[in-house]
Structure formats: C-alpha cells, structure tokens
Design a protein around this nucleic acid. Structure first.
Lengths: 347, 347
DNA sequence: CAAGTTTATGCAATCGTATTCAGTAAATTA
DNA sequence: TAATTTACTGAATACGATTGCATAAACTTG
C-alpha cells in the first residue's frame, strides 16, 4: 500500500488538519482541542505511525536518550565484564524506560575522547558513568564535561569537582560494617585488598572504613597486610599470593570487591588454607555469584535497583535544568558462609 | 567562544570550501582531494566537531544503531535478569562497537507493539532479539517483522518462518552430549526439566537431544520424569518438588538451563538428597555462577562472544541488503562437580 | 589540437518534525 | 454593541547533514 513511510503530513491529510496540529496533538499539547487530539491519535494508531526520532531530535535538539558509559578494558576479546556493572546496566535501562528515555550502551576507555562525543553529536541528552576505574585521568574528564555543560552522573565516586553529580553507597560505612563483623568473630589480623591510594575513591573509602573499624577496636593498622589492587579476580589471587609469600600471619581478609574475594579464596584453597576456618573472607558488592560461590560469600550489598533509579533521576533532573543532588545509599552486610569464628587455640 | 554549536558550515568557512565538501571529506568520500580532506579533518578536530546524528540520520534515513531487545518480565521491580542474556548483551555491544554501530538496549514484553517501533521511528537500523521466551506469540511477531521488511536476527530460535535469521547453538547436540555424559556415569533414571512442547523451540530441541541419547542407549523414555518449565530458577525448584512428591525413583537430572539446575540442586539439598552422590545434575548455558556454584555445575557452554559477533554481523548483512545466513555454534560440555558416578548398590 | 574523460568542487533540494507568528471564530466583558 | 480576551488552528520556517546534478579544470588520447 502507498509508497514511502507514514509521516505527520499523511495523518494531517486524513484528519483534515494541518501537520502542525498533528505534531501538537501527538505531544499532548494543551493547545489542541480534545476531540481533535483523540481523532488524530486514532488515525496515527491505525496508520502505525511513529514519530521519526531523527527529525524530532534535529528540530528539538534533544535525543531523549541516555548514554551509559562503562569503562572496562576493551582491548581483549574475552575480558570479562564485571557482573556488578552488568546488572546495574539492566536496572538502569529499566529505570530509564519508565521515564520514557532510551538507553545507549557503550564501552569506553578512559583515555578516549568520549567526553564531548555524545553531547555534541546530539546522540544523548545525558550520560551515566559506571566503573571508571583509575581516578587520576578521570578528574580531568569530569572537568571538561562540566565546562562543556554536559548532563552526567557518576556511580560511586565522590569529590568536590563532581559538584554532587554522584550516586553511590556509603563505602566507609559498608567497609566499617564488614570489618567490624570480622572483629566480632574474633579475627584480629585482618588483611585488606583494595585501594590505599587516592587513585580510586571508592576503594579508598572502603580502606578508610576498614581503618576506622580497626582503630575503634584498638588494633594497630599494619601496612604489611594491605594490598593496593583494582577490582579484578586476578588481582585478588595476586594479592593473596603476595600475602602468603610474605609469611605474615593473618586470619581474615576484607576484599573491597567480590571478585577480589573470589580470587582470594580460590588462591587460598590451592594452598590448603581453609575458608572460613583458617581465614575468614568478606567481599563487597554482592554480585549474583556471591551467593552461589563455595563457600557462599559474606559481602556488603549495594541496592542496585534503587541506585539505578537515582542515577536516572539525577541525569534527568540536570537535563531539565535543575541542579544535581548527591545521594548516598545505605549498604547492607549480607552474612553468609565465607567467615566464621576463630577456632580455639589456633595461631 | 562563539555562540551555538559547531556545524559543518563553520568548518567549511574556515577551510574555504563548501559545506558539501566538508560532509564528503569527513565521510572519507573518494570524491574529495586528499589534501583537502586532511585539512578539513584537522580543522574538525581542532573545533571539536562531531557530526549531528539526528541531522545525518534524518537525511540518510539510517541511524547506524542496533537495538537489542530483551524479553523478560518487566512487571516486577526486582525480577532478576537472566545473567546469560546480560553477558550476551555486553558482548553484543562490543561486537557492534567494532563495526561502528551504536547499541540501544530495551526490555520488552512480547505482547507489546515493539515490532514496528524501532524501524518506523528511525531509531535503529536493525534489531537483535534475545530471550523471547514463549514461542507461540513470537511467530506472529516474526511474521509482521518480515512483512515490514525489518532487519533482525534472533538468538536461539530456529524455524522456517525465520528464514535463516538465526544464530544459535546446536541445542540437540548439546543436550545429547549432556545426557550421554550422565549415561556414561552409569545413570539410568534421568529426569528432564525444560520444554517438551513446541512453545519454546530451544527447550524443545534440548528435549529432543535428551530423547536421542536415551534412545541410542536403549533406555525407555519415561514421561513421568519430564517436566515442562521455563528457564527460571524457581521453576527448577518447582519441578524438583513435583518429582520428589511423585515418589518416582531418579538418579540424575538434565536441566535445560543453569538456573533450572541451580534451583533443582538447592531444592534437593533441602530434602537431604546429595548431589552428585545420590543425584547427578547437568545444566545448560554456563552462566558465570555455574562455576562458582556449590557444587560447581557441569553444564553445556555456548560461546557467547562468538555468538555475539555472528549476531551483529548478520544484522548488518541484512542492513546492507544481503541475505541472512543461519549459523549454529558448537556447544561444549563443561564437566564440573555436579555429577559423578553412581555409588555401588544404591537404588 | 580537438574531443572526450576524469577529478574535484559547489549549488540546491531534500529528510520529517517542532515551533513561532499570525490569524480567526467564539466567548466574555464593559 | 463594541471591545477584549480565550481557544484553536495553519502557514512558514529552521534544525544540520547527505546527495543528485551541474560545472570547471586538468588530463588523455587519437
């Protein structure tokens, strides 16, 4: 039937009104008479009409789309994507859909020049940043984004340069809960895997929470038990290896991510160290695998569904010209089987 | 500096050429002199110019975007997204990026009228369908998509109505391998969880492979050991419950998805049935949790990275006007700890 | 050297919607 | 009744790139 696709002119013709009225009616403009609007909508439905997003976007200069940028190493084919961010991605998509926004997903390297691409190309009205990793290069990008007037929100990071463009969980508190739990179980020589430097504020905050718990318990903080790592499973294995090699006695590990914890437990197992009997381990994130792991992982849960809603809301706030509002979610300690009390009389 | 954003006219002005030449140069058209092109590109870089995708899309009627449609139940807030599709989603995004396509993610219900939306609204040039679930309503949509001339590819399903628009793994072979493995271990009363009806071809094919293995081993197929389910963990628990209640003896379960298998093992455990000693269990998919689960899950692996590449390639083939090409990937049995030999003299 | 070809560029016409501005009929007010 | 407001509607235009067509210069070739 007919040639070419249906446009608002076709509908205007059938309805006996102008194209302008069609455009207004479909966007529920109060300028259009109710009956006219219904008539137009009915015809639109019958003709299977859908607004051309390119045309609408060109005219209005809005894409009604949010970009989710995931910073993971895209060089290697089989590099695993952090399951925590993956589930986040799903939840953000849902939250955005509920607000009538489309979602564009993209993997980037921090070094690339993604910072202006989405806004200037009119491809996304706002950006959500996940898992940016190394913070050093990040601050610079943030600065550029703000200067360019881009609407964006960051998961996890905090800092004055972000000017409240953050949704995260209270990392200090989460780490404090985790470490306190280990202390309560009688553990005293607790190792920490994560960030001790300022490179990644999330990891650093978890370190701060760890220190806080130890200090409050009157325990000295031992630099020999700390390992500066990223979030990866392999790093957990590496840190454990180093720890074992050092010969330093330890009875627990608080790992700043579940993947780190899993890597650690696997490595401990190959050396015959029993978890949780000899060494208790706590993770952070509560990825799906945490509850399936053997032993199931005690970890700090972040509510990704609520977080996703807040992320989406915050970007949309900015798109609508309002100021961003920082939000910290409460972490919850999920107690499972990877940590238990100290056996009596053991080193 | 200056007002408004940079357009191709600005670049044309600076370069002393027409806007048309700028457009051509940036798209590497052979119509433009090499030196002119380099000059234009240099200026574009200096001005931080990015092509307006809305304008380009409007004129060319191409969005250079692929839509990934995930069919999962979006009603409930905390409904878990199948991790298999989630990791697929990540891999597809990467594969698309390598081909210079953007990726739009969307969760849909089969019943909604998504089938024309993306094409007619000029939002995506092609569609990749994942996890459509119930096949009955699906065939109808496929028909409409084809009639509308939409470029799309489906993961998993096969069937004449799809006309080769499929990338999947050889489900029959995968199920055959899994069941044969159980038989080799001495198991004889093997239950099947999955689809025995035509509702979902993937599940049905896995059933066929199961039957084939039993038949070749000269074992009667017992309908009392079969349970018609979807992919969910809860369904695995349900089927196990029913199986236990029936009182029928069984020494193994082949579940058509890992989530089903996990649900089954958890349920068995609460009844004191030991896995793999009393009952061996094999799953399908090899989701990340499979290797972390206790006991780690023997399962059939599908190479999602390769699959994702093929999915993307196939959609792009169609966008470029070529015919789709069906591709079946080889499944690989991953032997882990959820199945073992039968203990001597046990029922 | 004339005629034909190639190469590189510009002009101008789209693509389909949102929106400004102006206009008209009806309703309200003075 | 005239004046003013209200409630809609339409004509015209702008958004910024892509692309068919025309053309001028440079280059071949017999």
């Amino acid at each position: 039937m007919g040639s070419g696709k249906t446009t608002s002119f076709d509908i205007a013709h059938r309805a006996g009104v102008s194209q302008a009225t069609v455009s207004r009616a479909l966007r529920d403009s109060p300028l259009v008479n109710t009956q006219t609007r219904e008539k137009i909508k009915k015809i639109a439905r019958e003709l299977n009409y859908h607004v051309d997003r390119a045309a609408a976007g060109l005219r209005s200069q809005h894409s009604h789309t949010l970009a989710i940028l995931l910073f993971e190493d895209p060089t290697s084919d089989d590099s695993q994507i952090n399951p925590f961010f993956l589930s986040m991605l799903g939840n953000i998509t849902r939250a955005a859909a509920r607000r009538n926004y489309d979602v564009l997903v993209s993997f980037q390297q921090l070094s690339d020049d993604w910072h202006l691409k989405y806004q200037l190309s009119n491809r996304a009205d706002g950006i959500i940043l996940l898992g940016y990793g190394d913070y050093s290069g990040f601050a610079d990008k943030v600065d550029k984004l703000i200067k360019a007037g881009t609407c964006f929100t960051v998961w996890g990071a905090t800092g004055p340069e972000l000017e409240d463009r953050t949704i995260g969980c209270d990392n200090v508190d989460g780490a404090f809960q985790a470490t306190s739990h280990l202390l309560r179980l009688g553990r005293r020589k607790i190792a920490f895997f994560g960030g001790t430097s300022d490179n990644c504020p999330e990891l650093k905050q978890r370190y701060d929470g760890y220190c806080k718990a130890l200090t409050e318990a009157g325990i000295n903080i031992d630099p020999g038990l700390q390992f500066d790592t990223d979030f990866q499973e392999t790093s957990g294995a590496w840190a454990t290896e180093e720890l074992l090699k050092s010969g330093k006695p330890f009875d627990a590990i608080f790992a700043a991510s579940d993947l780190l914890a899993i890597g650690a437990i696997k490595r401990l197992r190959t050396s015959g160290v029993r978890v949780p009997i000899d060494v208790s381990v706590v993770g952070f994130d509560d990825i799906p695998a945490a509850s399936y792991f053997n032993p199931s992982l005690t970890t700090v849960q972040q509510n990704t569904i609520t977080a996703s809603k807040h992320l989406v809301n915050q970007v949309i706030r900015q798109i609508k010209g309002k100021k961003p509002k920082l939000k910290l979610l409460e972490p919850i300690l999920m107690v499972r089987h990877s940590c238990g009390g100290k056996p009596r009389g053991n080193s």
